[in-house]
Simulated scan of single mutants.
Amino acid sequence: MDWQKGERSQNVEVDSGGGGGGPRFGGGRGMGIGGIVVLAILGLVFFKDPTALLGQADSGGQQVAAPSGQPAQVDPQTKDFVSAILGSTEKTWGDIFAAHGRQYVDPKLDLFSGGVNTACGAASTAVGPFYCPGDQRVYLDVSFFRELESRFHASGDFARAYVIAHEVGHHVQNLLGVFDQVEQARRRGARMEGADGLSVRQELQADCFAGVWANHSQQRLQWLQPGDIESALNAASKIGDDALQQQAQGRVVPDSFTHGTSAQRVKWFRAGFDSGDIGSCNTFAGTP
């Protein structure tokens, strides 16, 4: 991937240690989409324990401390890469929103180390990359790219770019009102977890939006190289619920799915990439 062609974003921030945007409250009060039950849809791509996102010591809304975090040490090339990918998402989604008569609001991307406070609560490295709708920020631990390659055997610049684009996909959902609609459905008793649950459908839509970004950025920049799409599809397949459950516990439990199977994640990224059309990303209709 010739990522150097990408437009640089001015919205990448390096955390100084346990920082982050927005109020620091426990119990999910900063989310804007409900309580702890919907943590699974906040972009926890790598199937980590969702309760790690919040300071759970106090669920009554009192302020809680963030996990121990240190000032993030980010090498210039990594920050430049993240800035290039985020900048390309800003251009892509800005153009798409404008074509539909809407204005795209750029998210911030916070590079942190160890732990961070967010408007959704305190998060640790264990959470993995995530998006917080309360402060409209994507959070990414600086060690994650190494974990992506060593733990998930998903290497390549485009695999890393896919992760960022997926989280930005959640930001797009937030701007489009999808988060609010999911929360309303949850309040009416709709199922969140499980192979057919709303959490899976929302995560798959973020995968599809990542594919839409890949299509548009490639048309504009011609920056993909042989094997890049395969690396993104490989990353998607390695982080399916079934693959992660099989790896972790030796069995698959569809009733506890939150992000979709490997095949589903590949399918929906490919749907977005092949069409370049957000209209192809209605994962809430029919079988996901």
Rank of each mutant, 00 (worst) to 15 (best):
S113Q: 15
G30S: 08
G55F: 03
A159W: 01
D49E: 14
F269I: 07
T283C: 05
V64S: 09
L140C: 10
L198V: 13
A126L: 14
I33R: 00
G250N: 14
F273G: 00
C120I: 10
K91V: 15
G240M: 04
I41G: 15
K108C: 02
G20A: 03
G20Y: 10
K238I: 03
R146I: 04
Q247C: 02
F152Y: 15
Q245H: 07
V14Y: 11
Q218A: 09
Q63R: 13
A84I: 01
R29G: 12
G87V: 09
V45R: 02
G21L: 13
F257P: 02
D157H: 14
G22H: 09
P67R: 15
W213G: 06
D106L: 05
G250V: 12
R102S: 12
R160K: 15
P226H: 08
G55S: 08
P129F: 07
F144L: 02
G211I: 02
S237K: 14
F257L: 07
Q10F: 00
V45N: 10
D2L: 11
A119G: 12
V74P: 03
K267Y: 15
Q181Y: 06
A40Y: 04
A185P: 07
A195Y: 13
Y131T: 06
S59R: 14
L233C: 04
V172F: 04
S275W: 03
Q173E: 11
S237D: 10
D15V: 06
L54Q: 13
T283Q: 09
G26I: 05
E13N: 11
G20F: 11
G18T: 13
F209D: 13
F144A: 01
M192Q: 05
G114N: 12
I36W: 01
A271D: 12
S68N: 07
L221H: 08
R29T: 08
Q249E: 06
V45Q: 09
S217L: 00
Q63L: 12
N117W: 10
Q181S: 15
P107Y: 00
D274N: 06
S16Y: 04
E7C: 02
G27T: 05
P254D: 09
A161L: 05
P129R: 07
G22R: 00
G128S: 11
A271G: 01
G20R: 07
G250Q: 11
G32K: 02
G121S: 11
Q264V: 01
M1Q: 11
D274V: 07
E230G: 08
F81E: 09
R201A: 07
G27M: 06
G87S: 10
F112M: 02
Q136N: 15
G69C: 04
R151V: 14
F145R: 01
G134Q: 01
I85N: 00
Y139D: 03
D207M: 07
V172T: 05
N117H: 14
G87A: 08
G69V: 08
L198A: 13
V252D: 08
R187V: 01
V82G: 08
G169V: 04
S280C: 02
G35L: 00
V168P: 01
R188A: 14
V14C: 07
T258P: 02
S199T: 14
S237A: 15
K79D: 08
S68H: 07
T118K: 06
L221R: 07
F257K: 10
P129N: 05
C132R: 03
Q219L: 12
A40F: 00
V37H: 03
D141A: 12
G22D: 06
H166N: 11
L233Y: 03
R146V: 10
E147L: 15
